[in-house]
């Protein structure tokens, strides 16, 4: 079913080398990968295997040494610097492990920040954010500053910020690494719900087994290479739910 649509993300023989003194680190080494709309895919692998590097490449935060990357059919390397920043703002949602919110803005203002930059009118922004906050039980926190919220609450606001402008894909780098298991569960519930109900596509990296179990596909990396790329049965079931 998924193979009928065009991939959102396509990597063709992508390599990213870093020079560390005399040695060359092959952070990503000849990777081919396609991600389709509606996927809930995990990249797992040991520390240093290249998970963050690959997400940064897909998010146009970094350039491959070799190979090509397309997102929504657009070749990232053909974009100018300002095109890339607008592309990142409008088409990619990012969630990082430290849920860095803007400290001088409230939860609501943080969550709507991308929409503000896109010029969406304030009444519409507020409506969209508040309805999502309500769905994830963050109602009533809209006027809190980041330092007045728990880590899990902040991370959920960061996820709303990533998802609110309906990006093509959300890239999440270890979104549950800094929170306890119960909070991680809530964060996953939120992402799974957004995946199911809004058909948002997620690609995230994690070490967390609880997260891996819930993914529709698990990509395992080692030394910059993909060593395993499996559709999980659990996910097959969940994708039937929303098809």
């Amino acid at each position: 079913m998924k193979t009928h649509s065009d991939p959102i993300v396509r990597l063709e023989n992508v390599t990213r080398h870093f020079h560390q003194g005399e040695t060359i680190v092959r952070a990503v080494d000849g990777v081919d990968l396609e991600v389709y709309p509606g996927e809930f895919t995990v990249i797992s692998g040991p520390s240093g295997s290249g998970k963050t590097t690959i997400l940064n490449l897909i998010g146009a935060l970094d350039d491959p040494t070799e190979g090509k990357i397309w997102v929504e059919g657009k070749n990232l390397s053909s974009m100018s610097r300002s095109e890339r920043s607008v592309f990142r703002r409008d088409r990619i949602g990012f969630v990082f492990q430290a849920y860095n919110l803007i400290p001088v803005l409230t939860a609501l203002e943080n969550a709507e920040f991308i929409l503000t930059l896109q010029g969406v009118p304030s009444s519409e922004r507020k409506e969209r954010v508040l309805s999502l906050m309500k769905e994830v039980e963050l109602e009533g926190l809209e006027n809190r500053r980041p330092d007045e919220m728990s880590g899990g609450q902040q991370q959920r606001i960061a996820i709303i910020r990533a998802i609110i402008s309906n990006p093509a894909i959300v890239l999440a780098d270890e979104p549950t690494a800094n929170v306890d298991t119960a909070t991680a569960g809530k964060i996953l519930d939120l992402m799974a719900k957004l995946n199911r109900e809004k058909n948002a596509t997620f690609l995230f990296s994690t070490h967390d087994h609880n997260v891996i179990e819930r993914a529709s596909r698990v990509i395992r990396m080692q030394d910059g290479k993909i060593i395993k790329n499996d559709l999980q049965s659990a996910i097959e079931n969940s994708s039937e739910d929303h098809s």
């Binding site: 935060l61 990012f94 430290a98 860095n100 803007i102 803005l105 920040f113």
Partner: peptide
């Protein structure tokens, strides 16, 4: 410009 995440500044 303050960096909040690798992709976001304010």
């Amino acid at each position: 410009s303050r960096q909040v995440t690798p992709e976001l500044t304010y």
